[in-house]
Design a protein around this nucleic acid. Structure first.
Length: 106
DNA sequence: ACGGTGACGCTCA
DNA sequence: TTGAGCGCCACCG
């Protein structure tokens, strides 16, 4: 069947790693990929967050790209930008200002 | 400095 | 079941 009614361990790790990000901090897809033990597969991370059944539970809006761009989000990148502002993260034109300042690393 | 392509894991139809 | 796409990143020319 290949149709997984249950999420894979990889997904679980992605959501867990995302929830580990403290408020006011952000992380890149690559960072999350390394946290889950799948470096170089940042695509799978983005896909997992997009399909994550715990959308309000997982702060997927804290996940940004390596260059600091918010990228694309399911609920609308503009809304995410607003949420990031509420957390104290400076975002300008869909891009994190001082990404390294807010970048969360393991 | 810039642009385009390859590549990984997972999901959808 | 198989084939193709995705919220990407890194490398190469």
């Amino acid at each position: 069947m290949l149709v997984r009614n249950a999420p894979t361990p990889f997904h679980q790790q992605v959501w867990k790693a995302t929830k580990l990000i403290p408020r006011g901090k952000v992380a890149t897809y690559s960072t999350i990929a390394q946290m889950v033990g799948r470096p170089g597969s940042a695509r799978a991370v983005g896909n997992a967050l997009n399909k994550n059944p715990y959308a309000p539970l997982v702060p997927c809006h804290r996940i940004v790209r390596s260059d600091g761009t918010v990228g694309g989000f399911a609920s609308g990148s503009e809304k995410k930008t607003n949420m990031l502002h509420s957390e104290g993260v400076k975002v300008m034109n869909g891009k994190i200002v001082g990404l390294e300042n807010y970048l969360y690393k393991k």
